[in-house]
Amino acid sequence: MRKDRDFWILVGTLALFGAVNISFFLVGRLQVNWEDFGIVLAAGITLTMYSFLYKDNPAFKIAENMYVGVALGYTVIITWFNALKPDLYDPLLVPLFTWERTPEYLLFAPMVLGVFMLMRLSTRLAWLSRWPFAFVVGLGAGITIPNYIHTFVLKQIEPSLRPVFSGGETVYMSINTLLILLGVISVLIYFFFSTEHKGPIGVVSKIGIWFLMVSFGASFGYTVMGRMSLLIGRTMFLLKDWLGVVQ
């Protein structure tokens, strides 16, 4: 009984969506061109995705799986046009076969490592994929050490240790500077597990928890508002671009 009802809700919604769009095309609200057809498709996908708020349904699952496929296809094509073509195909493979200019032979090394990475798919030669992984991981580790020391350690400690009174600032600013120093130290002490959190360490650690709670609350509120702005964006698209009821 319930399945029947869901089926008819789905059919009814699709029929209504179709009727609305056909009437838009007939009255000239939408033109028969790719741009307006794109608006209809985007509106359909938006409504299909929102249908999940009622319950999981076949239309949502189709749109969800299609989205995964399109996202994959987009990533593959963009990787070709932004990475493999300009950095490997154009400077190495094209000159190698046309001899219009000297090929960049050094690029053979990453090409071979890239092919080795694809060996992951073979059971006998999977071990070869360790070489490119080692290259990528080693490169990342080497870049991380100096960059993190500079950007995230020194550059973060510097403003935390700013003088409370150096002339020119208000009492409000000085209190804030002091609070930031207290917050950084107490949070670091909270995450320091080599000493038992008892006595003075326990008190500072407790202050650290308070700072963390405020931060988590602020991050939550900020994320919710970010999602809300996306929701407003999609609603505005439906009301303005598709239905045209908002100017």
Partner: peptide
């Protein structure tokens, strides 16, 4: 202020962990 201080503390801990792992 409090959010920045907590984020900075977390960031310092994460960075030291990333450097050690590297």
């Amino acid at each position: 202020v409090p959010n920045l201080a907590a984020k900075r503390g977390i960031l310092l801990g994460v960075s030291l962990g990333a450097i050690a792992t590297s």
